[in-house]
């Protein structure tokens, strides 16, 4: 059975147009390619140190 009080918690206010700038700036743009490159670089650094 649906519990209104519980269900209403699932709803969150929508972002308004004025808040778009923050939404864009706060967007985490790190992707798998970035992670892979970082890992490879770390590996290379470790090899160089050895």
């Amino acid at each position: 059975m649906i519990n209104f009080e519980e269900e209403i918690k699932k709803f969150h206010p929508s972002l308004e147009v004025e808040e778009a700038e923050d939404a864009i700036y706060n967007n985490d743009l790190t992707d798998m390619v970035d992670i892979m490159i970082a890992m490879l670089r770390e590996e290379e650094d470790e090899d160089d140190n050895e």
Partner: peptide, 29 residues
């Protein structure tokens, strides 16, 4: 786009999908 942020087609389509769902700010972002 989590795999490849430069996948512009995916990002643009995601924007369109958001727009269709009524999430305008997410679409614009």
């Amino acid at each position: 786009i989590k795999y490849n942020k430069h996948n512009t087609n995916a990002r643009n389509l995601l924007g369109l999908v958001y727009f269709e769902m009524g999430e305008v700010v997410a679409a614009l972002s």
